Simulated assay, not measured.
Amino acid sequence: MGKLTEAQLQAVKSYVEANICHSSLQVLSYINITFGLVYKSDSVIALLHRLGFVYKKTKLVASKANLEKQEVFIKEFREIERNLPDNEIILFGDGLHPRHNTESTYAWIEKGKEKEVLSNTGRVRININGAINPANPTEIVYHECDTIDAVSTIVWLKCIEAAYP
């Protein structure tokens, strides 16, 4: 006889369906925190199988932009751009970690179903702090670094300051 009630079993099933659970330990922790019950890892694996889940690779799908949000942003940006003083520019900046291919990993997924993971393209990861002038996209200020942290961000901001005194 299992420790979980039917309602609790459904809650566990809903949790696994709604999340990417790479390990049965994630589910074990969920059960312990949510219901105060202690399970062994092997028992959680058996429970997941009983609930109809199998351990298999996730499915990669291309991520897509939200066109409506983009249109709103562009409209707001154009208004800011129109009111910008002549001695000022706008820069878009961000830290990025380009990678050629997202790797599909294993997770607990209901048998007969797929769990999709948005994929980027990339093989090797590099770390770049970069800024671009949208009025002149050839104007780019960037700083490649081992890791993006406070120190590398300060170095990058000094690069921007040097480019736009």
Rank of each mutant, 00 (worst) to 15 (best):
L9K: 11
C21G: 01
K115M: 11
I128N: 01
G93K: 02
I20K: 01
L67R: 10
T121Q: 10
Q70G: 14
Q26A: 06
T121K: 12
V44K: 00
L25D: 12
I31R: 00
F53T: 00
Q8K: 05
Y30M: 03
V72S: 05
E68N: 10
A18G: 07
N83K: 13
L37F: 11
L47N: 02
K57P: 04
P165M: 01
S14Q: 12
T34G: 03
L37C: 03
V16N: 01
T5L: 06
K111I: 05
P134T: 11
S104K: 09
R50N: 13
N129W: 13
V117C: 07
P98W: 03
C159Y: 12
F53V: 02
T34Q: 15
S63D: 09
V12Q: 04
N127K: 03
A150T: 13
P85S: 11
I154K: 13
E114Q: 15
H143N: 15
Y106Q: 15
V151G: 00
P137V: 13
R78E: 15
L91S: 07
A7Y: 10
L48V: 02
S24V: 09
R99H: 13
K59S: 11
D86S: 14
V155H: 13
N136P: 05
P134D: 13
S24C: 08
G93A: 14
I109E: 01
A65F: 07
A163Y: 14
S29H: 13
L37T: 03
N133R: 13
E161T: 07
I140T: 13
V16C: 00
A65H: 08
R125G: 05
N129P: 05
A162M: 08
L60K: 12
L47K: 01
